[in-house]
Design a protein around this nucleic acid. Structure first.
Lengths: 329, 329
DNA sequence: ATGAAAGCGCTAACAT
DNA sequence: ATGTTAGCGCTTTCAT
């Protein structure tokens, strides 16, 4: 049985299609009585407006396109937050996944075919020039990545501050010999390194940086190096949670106890960090704020401002069980 | 600058809109010369057909709606596989995320508004009656969950076989004292328990089952119980990878060595299981097969058959480093 | 092979 | 408050 159309509802309610449209759009121009009658007819027929037709007729689609990496848990969180932020702003979301077999430009193209008003790209990998080209036809908001492309708005976390928070937490616990294991050339690694270094210098301490990486096995490797060199440190800040858990796993197999003898701080607040048996102190990105800001930015680019903006959101420290006051000897 | 329309392309190419339509649909009825001219005009204007309008005009939308849980890594893999399977079958995908703040019925509704021809629900949580109601208006395919709802097609993994594979692998390694730590009332737990039990009995061995759960902390708890009871077993099959990693983490902190003294097998082949420092032997669901079958099922329900089907896909054993031959004493 | 015309299910501007 | 009339950008007969 074919789905009911606006025409059907109008006929059953004994009104014109325009009235039905008004009622379903919650627009002004229909008496309460009519409104009730139309709604009744609609629900009797199980009517739901055809989204495609609705968008076609409208000048503005109120559709925001979102690309996300299907394998990145962090993107999942962002997508969820984007849904509510978009709804609050009266926008709808069109999702397009990026995966190994489906690259970012494919994902973007399909969004364009739906005539999204703006593109919200989570952790975009596209080249600056490709991004700029995209930004010529509609607003493009890059989320969570420090891209520098003309015409592209950016919403991201203040990673320098994040690293600083980690160091300050350790300082407050009495630590003074703090090592940073970095993220090599990973995105955000430079900022996190800088944040660490600045915070240490500001405290009059000597920065100490060991090369790391971004994966669990990089972390395990770093731990082996660490155990071998056994630098005189009581605390370590690590580039991210994956690195930290790999490091932690290996350290726990040694005689060094965490957090009694060694405090550890990760970065990202991934699901893994929150697991009870890991319970990693870490730095969390403010997902709701990132999402809300992304929507707000899209909105304002769509209406007023022609100027591109960069919004930097402060992260927060998540206290768990891998940090403790420095042990008095 | 507004986006080019079919009319624009037609004008530039000096043909009618209908011809442009034919060319862009790759339909018969246009000379090669015209085809080339139209395509040239199109690309000069940067033309891309408006997806919404295209769907509206067409009788069939060739759109398949997919709901997925944004936090489930396994769903991410499935979505990726679905993209390619759908493309091969000439279908397009509309994604709708399920998240804590966005329940499944919301996700489904938005898909319906897009006039998807069929619904592919990954691990649906909806009640059988709700699913059946949905199935009255269009084909509904439940993937990865053993739902029993009238009119709903099911595509899932053969969990009984999965458990059996795990046991048989251990038998082949010479183990005979094999424990199963189950998933309590988690979806799939009953099948996996049955598979274990049957395989054990078939080998003339005595099944031994310890209550478990589905999370890492359940696994850690199970490990404590295990260490305490120290049952005389040389191998353990666990409900899933999360349970197994929690178990493994705790066991590794004891004096029992894995896999030398104890072999472990998980289930699901999650990303975590594949990490080098975990390297968990596990049972993998055949994601591409599940995806392809889901699309095939949707397709045949859309064309011929009115009968609902259940397809059960065999899983496979993934050999890693947590299983080894039984130690000869 | 090509074009004219109608229509998909809505929205929106204009009448009444 | 309600109805009429055009579109929105395509697809799809049906002529030519």
């Amino acid at each position: 049985m074919p789905r009911a159309t606006m025409e059907d509802v109008a006929r059953l309610a004994g009104v014109s299609r325009a009235l039905v449209s008004i009622v379903y759009r919650d627009a002004a121009g229909a008496s309460d009585a009519t409104r009730a009658r139309v709604l009744a007819a609609g629900s009797e027929l199980g009517y739901r407006p055809d989204h495609r037709a609705r968008l076609l007729g409208r000048t503005r689609t109120r559709l925001l396109g979102v690309t996300f990496d299907v394998r990145a848990p962090f993107h999942g969180d962002l997508v969820e937050a984007l849904y509510s932020a978009a709804e609050a702003a009266g926008y709808d979301l069109a999702l397009s996944a990026v995966a190994p077999s489906r690259d970012e430009s494919r994902a973007v193209q399909s969004l364009l075919d739906y005539r999204c008003e703006a593109l919200i790209l989570l952790g975009p990998q596209l080249s600056p020039s490709a991004l700029s080209a995209l930004a010529e036809s509609q607003p493009v908001i890059a989320v969570g990545r420090k891209v520098r492309a003309a015409g592209v708005d950016v919403v991201r976390t203040d990673d320098t501050t994040g690293s600083r928070l980690a160091v300050e937490h350790l300082l407050a616990l009495g630590h003074s010999h703090i090592l940073h294991i970095d993220g090599a050339k990973s995105p955000g690694a430079a900022e996190r390194r800088t944040g660490y270094r600045d915070a240490m210098r500001k405290a009059g301490l000597h920065p100490l940086i060991q090369p790391g990486g971004r994966t669990e096995s990089d972390g395990a490797d770093a731990a082996k190096t660490f155990l071998n060199d056994s630098p005189p440190v009581t605390a370590v800040t690590l580039f991210n949670d994956r690195l930290a858990t790999g490091f932690l796993d290996t350290i726990r197999q040694s005689s060094i106890e965490v957090p009694e003898a060694l405090s550890l701080i990760g970065y990202d607040n991934t699901t893994i960090a929150a697991l009870p048996h890991i319970s990693l102190t870490t730095i969390a990105q403010n997902t709701p704020a990132l999402a809300t800001q992304a929507i707000t930015t899209a909105q304002s680019r769509l209406t007023n401002t022609p100027t591109t903006t960069t919004t930097v959101i402060p992260p927060t420290l998540i206290l768990r069980s891998t940090t403790a006051p420095v042990r008095t000897k």
